[in-house]
């Protein structure tokens, strides 16, 4: 099988973040760039599937500036066979539509059997590139995969989607297909020493730049701001039972509690 895994390089935003001088992105100075955590699960899944089908290969693709090579290389350190970078030099916010378009241009020529993506990117949290890419390539797709099994004859993939209320939905997709995986589908491995050494000498080719030709101009990010802290909390009133009812109503409205009712 020929497998493509999409990996995004993001600024590590787990510590304190500040808004940059443009007001349109975070201040990246001093931040470390690394692989989007959600994509680590996609890389791991690609390696597991590759190893189950001898002769398979995993290509990791990253769209971004020169430094995105480090993220493609990180996938090789984890065990991917090769890495590719699609040049995308725009700083700050980039429309998922543009990213998907660039990856699709690469994937069309390669005829992958399976494309894997993470659930979303930690930075823009749009969760779009996977499903966009599938549609651009005209292949079936499923997101929120918490389990995935390729059929013995490598003609289909069975996906368990994690849906509301902790329930799961089973879907068979005929290959080629795209699957966006959920954290928890596996436990991403640490790079082995031999793969780290292999990645060191591995060239990350840069794809020829292609002009994005979507039907219309994409959406624009006009402002990035920090959320206001809500001052005092809302104290629930009434008898203990009434408070329980109120809390239940709040959680239901926010779709945090959705039982199998």
């Amino acid at each position: 099988m020929k497998i493509l895994v999409c990996v995004k390089q993001v600024a590590d935003s787990e510590s304190v973040i500040e808004i940059g001088p443009s007001g349109e992105w975070i201040a990246e100075e001093g931040l470390v760039f690394r692989m989007n955590r959600f994509d680590e699960y996609a890389v791991e899944e690609s390696l597991v599937i590759r190893d189950a089908f001898p002769g398979s290969t995993v290509t990791a693709i990253s769209a971004g500036p020169k430094r995105a090579e480090i993220t493609a290389r990180r996938a090789i350190e984890m065990g991917a066979d090769r890495g590719v970078r699609v040049p995308l030099e725009t700083p700050g916010y980039v429309s998922p539509m543009a990213v998907a378009f660039l990856i699709a241009a690469h994937a069309r020529g390669e005829r992958y059997d399976l494309i894997l993506c993470g659930a979303m990117a930690e930075d823009d949290m749009q969760a779009q590139v996977g499903p966009l890419l599938a549609e651009m390539l005209d292949i079936p797709s499923a997101t929120s995969a918490i389990a995935a099994t390729v059929s013995g004859d490598a003609s289909a993939i069975r996906v368990e989607r994690e849906i509301e209320g902790g329930a799961r939905e089973l879907i068979d997709l005929s290959l080629p297909a795209l699957v966006a995986v959920q954290p928890g589908i596996n436990r991403p491995r640490y790079p082995s020493l031999s793969n780290v050494l292999r990645a060191k000498i591995h060239q990350i080719p840069t794809e020829e730049p292609v002009a994005a030709a979507h039907a219309q101009t994409p959406e624009r990010l006009v402002r990035l701001r920090l959320p206001e802290r809500s001052g005092a909390s809302e104290m629930l009133s009434g008898s203990p039972a009434e408070k329980a009812e109120k809390l239940l109503a709040i959680l239901s409205t926010k779709s945090l509690l959705q039982g199998a009712s």
Partner: peptide, 24 residues
């Protein structure tokens, strides 16, 4: 947002909010 519809959504794990103007 500046005379256009602005859509607010969370980014960076909820640490920041984006204002996005949709295409025409």
């Amino acid at each position: 947002d500046d005379g256009a519809i602005g859509l607010t959504r969370s980014a960076f794990g909820g640490k920041a909010l984006m204002h996005i103007v949709p295409p025409e």
